[in-house]
Design a protein around this nucleic acid. Structure first.
Length: 259
DNA sequence: ATGGTGGGTCTCCCA
């Protein structure tokens, strides 16, 4: 099966891109971020027409996450979770569900704005709470996939100009440590099982013709538990939708699993 | 250091 993650930056604007990409790439499970839609406005019918079931946790204007699964090949979603237990947070950034043999956790990690900002403190606290949640999920569900927009570059290979970027937001040592604390639970960055070179990115700023100049970052990740590691067959970053008219600033990342 | 572009509750906030 093929599993994918895509920050669409407004599902309202990007619905035509999404349905085109679903038809082209034929993923089995898709995690979306930044849908920016209230649940009542989620395009359930358009996605059903495209062959996909959906679960979603959205809000107006900001954030919003959703999971899609092919209706013809995948069973209904089960055990849906939309909040980190014990965290009272109105921001819709997490969505967990079981799809057949897989437990899937979709994350839209806090951006953080700038090192030292109050949003940065919220980011680090949120990551620590997510880590606790994932530790519990991993105990219950060995076939765990954690994917989404992590808003953290794992290391300097994931930054177009690591010297210029330095220890700024998305690359600061505390952010990287927070991500490492999650991967050290036994969650592997699947892209790095197949590609060790620098220069592979999933996000490019809209400004300064960053995409054309490949001035990007790799911040969209698909992490898999130990049990799934031997089942991983290929990981890709599909840059094609970033070339389309009026694109999201992120492009889809995928993982093929022998499952 | 600044500003560039794009999204939405659209002359401000967020990324």
């Amino acid at each position: 099966m093929k599993i994918a993650s895509w920050n669409v930056n407004s599902l309202n604007v990007r619905l035509p891109h999404l349905t085109q990409w679903l038809a082209d790439a034929q993923p089995d499970v898709v995690a979306l971020q930044e849908t920016k839609l209230e649940d009542a406005k989620f395009p359930v019918d358009a996605l059903a027409a495209a062959g996909y079931r959906a679960v979603y946790a959205g809000q107006k204007t900001y954030n919003g996450v959703a999971l899609l699964a092919r209706a013809d090949t995948q069973p209904a979603f089960a055990d849906v979770v939309t909040d980190i237990p014990g965290l009272d947070d109105p921001q819709r950034r997490i969505l967990a569900a079981t799809v057949g043999e897989l437990r899937v956790v979709d994350l839209y990690v806090v951006n953080g704005k700038a090192v030292g900002d109050e949003k940065y403190a919220y980011k680090l606290d949120w990551m620590a709470r997510v880590r606790e949640f994932l530790a519990a999920e991993l105990e219950r569900h060995p076939n765990l996939v954690v994917l989404g927009d992590f808003n953290i570059c794992p290391d300097d290979r994931d930054v177009y100009d690591p010297v210029a970027w330095g220890e700024d937001i998305l690359c600061s040592p505390p952010e990287r440590a927070a991500l490492k604390a999650i991967t050290e639970l036994g969650l592997h960055d699947s892209f790095r099982l197949f590609e060790t070179d620098a220069g592979h990115f999933s996000w490019w700023d809209y400004r300064q013709a960053a995409f054309r100049r490949n001035m990007g970052l790799r911040i969209d990740l698909i992490l898999i538990g130990e049990a799934l590691k031997p089942r991983a067959r290929a990981a890709t970053i599909d840059r094609e939708p970033r070339r389309w008219e009026r694109p999201s600033d992120h492009t889809p990342v995928t993982l093929d699993l022998d499952i």
